[in-house]
């Protein structure tokens, strides 16, 4: 069984797959992580996915509108935007407003990637006119540029901060910050696909997602 999942779900879905395989002997879950927009494009083009977990509704709706989903999408997780900087914070960034400084190297997700759409909304909400130096195709590509110290700041998800380890630090963004709700849907009509979706939205799946910092939708 092949699960296409948003890049931000990497660690959580690896754990999910391990537990699911342990509970269902004989099932082999293969995971494909990328930006949700790329996954949606691949599924639209006919990729043999059984389950699609997207980081926002827009990319799931694209797939659903083309009749590529076997069941209605279900929301299963919520994630907030986070501002990460390299551990030594070379740009001296302490709040979102600092991102209007054009001399900073700022990495964000491209607008069609869920984290990029979220970043645009958050920056617009705050009235910040930021000029990102690069628009990456997945949230993890943004994180890598910050982890390497090549970018002064990156807009990622709260759950990505942990994946960056001690090489990155999060700048608190305040409680009003926006979030994305993640939908999941069976793409193929195999029984295993529907069962995996049930597992993700069920108590075991939710427990694993919480342990990785996701909230419930």
């Amino acid at each position: 069984m092949t699960v296409y999942a948003a890049a931000s779900l990497s660690e959580a879905f690896e754990d999910l797959a391990t537990e699911y395989e342990a509970a269902n002997p004989g099932v082999d879950v293969k995971l494909n992580f990328a930006g949700s927009a790329r996954l949606a494009a691949q599924i639209s083009a006919g990729a043999r996915a059984d389950v699609f977990a997207s980081a926002n509704g827009a990319n799931m709706n694209r797939v659903a509108a083309e009749g590529r989903t076997a069941a209605s999408p279900v929301l299963f997780a919520r994630n907030r935007l986070a501002l990460v900087v390299p551990a030594d914070n070379p740009g001296n960034i302490s709040e979102l407003e600092d991102l209007s400084d054009d001399s900073l190297v700022l990495a964000v997700c491209a607008p069609e990637v869920p984290c990029g759409a979220l970043a645009q909304v958050v920056l617009a909400d705050a009235g910040i006119d930021a000029d990102p130096d690069t628009e990456e195709t997945s949230v993890r590509a943004v994180l890598t540029k910050v982890t390497l110290g090549e970018a002064d700041a990156g807009l990622v998800y709260a759950t990505d901060v942990a994946a960056g380890g001690d090489k990155v630090a999060a700048v608190p963004l305040g409680p009003q910050i926006r979030f994305n709700d993640y939908p999941v849907a069976a793409v193929s009509d195999r029984a295993a696909a529907a069962a995996f979706v049930d597992f993700v939205v069920g108590p075991d799946g939710q427990r694993i997602l919480w342990s990785h910092g996701f909230d419930s939708p």
């Binding site: 930006g35 927009a37 494009a41 639209s44 990319n59 491209a110 069609e112 990637v113 195709t137």
Partner: peptide, 10 residues
């Protein structure tokens, strides 16, 4: 091209 493809603008 890659971006347009991923943005659902084939």
């Amino acid at each position: 091209i890659a971006q347009a493809n991923e943005a659902g603008q084939p």
